[in-house]
Design a binder for these strands. Structure first.
Lengths: 168, 168
DNA sequence: ATAAACTTTCAAAATATTTTGAAAGTTTAA
DNA sequence: TTAAACTTTCAAAATATTTTGAAAGTTTAT
């Protein structure tokens, strides 16, 4: 396989994975393109490469910056802005974990904690099932939360080393 | 808060979380409804409760069965089918992990392995960046794969116990 | 102050996903 | 068989998300 073909496949695969995980396809593709690019690229180059509109490129780049996955680069004497991706994959994984935890897990935990306080008739099967399901999910969610918090703080080698020491 | 209000909130929150994770909202809501229900419910009851059409209910229930999250129950002397959810939250988490791994991670790993074999000019910055990014992502994906495989086989207490022994 | 270079916005259009519901299909009891 | 009870299908409609591109906005050099 040629490098160019490989790049296209990677961008496609990354885009698909992104969309299955609730991140829009274009955003994942722009990220993939920048991951593969040794130099920073301009909006224009990204538009051309992925055949997307200026507006789309602009919004997508802004989102990626908010996720902490790419940065702007300013070059002396130039007006254009250049964009480049964080290349350390562990840092990327942590950023994504942190962002999704904040946006998705934290609000759910808040609701679950509220729901855990609901009182009712212990003889009522509906109440008992509610309490058990909510309680169990709450426990699981808290474990996930603790693990993600640890992961976000951790070094890659330490993290996987610790996991595999146990999971041998 | 009343039990009924709590149920509605839970169904809403579960639906939202589902949609953020690439699972459709209705599917997550039906699952939530069954999780909270001490008895198995009929298609009719689910339609009424969530105000969804027969077709939608039918397809959603079928999907949930394919995910291994709910089961049909047959009652002697009755024509209707009853549906109930697996209530053990750890089992649910494992089913979801297994299913998503199979559908999403496995195909990506396949592509990454292919892309890892691409040969090129070691002096070419584009090739070097491609190789590094693809290689690093491949390593990370393999670690995630191993961890999920372990999780799918593991008992809940053992799994979290092991994690927290390390992540204290 | 002007104008060129560049970025951002946002309403409308395109696309994709989900839902509906009526019709077709299946099963069971009599 | 037949027909009632129930389930499944799927094309069309509704909804939601994403993308476009022209216009408005901003910055900078002169």
């Amino acid at each position: 396989m040629e490098l160019a073909e490989g790049k296209a496949k990677f961008i496609e695969a990354w885009g698909k994975l992104g969309s299955e995980w609730g991140i829009n396809r274009t955003m994942a593709q722009v990220h993939a393109l920048l991951l593969l690019s040794p130099e920073a690229l301009t909006t224009e180059e990204i538009m051309d490469d992925l055949k997307i509109s200026r507006g789309n490129a602009n919004m997508t780049l802004r989102d990626l910056i908010n996720w902490g996955l790419i940065e702007k680069q300013h070059r002396a004497g130039e007006r254009k802005e250049y964009f480049f991706a964080e290349k350390d994959v562990w840092t990327i994984a942590r950023q994504v974990a942190q962002e999704r935890k904040r946006r998705e897990l934290d609000p759910v935990l808040k609701v679950l904690n509220e729901l855990s306080t609901i009182k009712g008739d212990e003889k009522d099967a509906h109440y008992k099932t509610f309490k058990k399901s909510v309680g169990d999910i709450n426990k699981l969610a808290k474990n996930v939360d603790r693990t993600l918090t640890t992961m976000v703080k951790a070094e890659e080698n330490w993290f996987w080393g610790s996991i595999f020491k146990i999971f041998k």
